[in-house]
Design a protein around this nucleic acid. Sequence first.
DNA 1: ATGGGAATACTACCACGGTAGTATTGTGTG
DNA 2: CACACAATACTACCGTGGTAGTATTCCCAT
Lengths: 128, 128
Amino acid sequence: MQTNSLHRLGDLQLRILQSLWKHHHAGVAQVRQDVGINLAYTTVATMLRKMEIKGLVEHQQQGRRFIYQATVQKDQVTHGLADRFVDHLFQGNLAGAIGHLLETRVVDPNDLDRLEAIIHQHRQTLSK
Amino acid sequence: MQTNSLHRLGDLQLRILQSLWKHHHAGVAQVRQDVGINLAYTTVATMLRKMEIKGLVEHQQQGRRFIYQATVQKDQVTHGLADRFVDHLFQGNLAGAIGHLLETRVVDPNDLDRLEAIIHQHRQTLSK
DNA sequence: ATGGGAATACTACCACGGTAGTATTGTGTG
DNA sequence: CACACAATACTACCGTGGTAGTATTCCCAT
C-alpha cells in the first residue's frame, strides 16, 4: 500500500511478487512452485501473510484455500528500486546510471537496437 | 570483501560508502558530515565498525582516530544493485529494464543525447 | 462417517540494518 | 600535571526478512 519503502523488499518478497504478477492471482502452492520448491510450504505461506499485513498483497478465500493477489503494481516496485539505484549511486543522474549499466554488462546488438528505438520514440514524445 | 550479497546493503551503508568513495578515506566525523548530522556520532561509528566486520570498509589508525576507507569498489556495488534490479524485475533483460527506466522517469533531451552517444560508442566496440 | 491429507494459524528464531546510550581511554592544552 | 574533550568500545534494542516447526482445522475420498 505504502509507496514509500518499496525498495526495502527482500529477495523472497520480490520473487513472490514476481509470481503473483505473472499469475495475477495464485495460491500458496503455486507461488511456491515459482519461488522455489526447496522452501518449506509454510515459509511461503508465512511470507505471504507478512506481506499482506504490510499491504503488499491481499487474498480472497476460495473454499479452503487462500488466493493471493499483489496490491502493488510492478511499476511501483520498479520505480522504488530504480530510485535507490539512480539516486543513491548516481545522484539522480539517470543517463549516468544507464551508461554505467551498458558499460558493465554484456549487451547484444539487438538490445542496442531496441534501446535506440525507445530513445527515438521518447524524443518524439518530448518534442510534441 | 564478498562480492555476493552486495545488494543487501542498507541505505545508511550506501550513503556511508558514497562518502568514503568521495573522500577516498575519511574519519567518522567527516562521514557523519556527509551522511547526516542528524545521526548520532556513535551511530555512524557503530555502522562503520559493523561494515568493517563485513569487509566493506577498513581502517587505519592515525593517532587517536580511525581513518576509514572503502574496500568495495563502487562498480561492485553498482553491479550488485543492478543485478537485483535487472534480474529480479526484468528476468535479465537489460534493454527492457532500461526501457522501463526511461519510460517511468523524467528524462531531458540532453540525457537522450548522451545515451545515444553511449550506444553508438558501444556499437563500435562490439563490431570491432 | 471417518481418517488422512491439505491448508492455514501461531509461534519462534536468527541475522542484520539502524539507532543510540554508556563506559572507557587517550591526548592535547592550559 | 591534570582535566576536559574527543574518540572508540561495548551493549542494547527494535523492526523485519527469511525460515520453518507445530498445532489446528476442514474437506474429500473411501
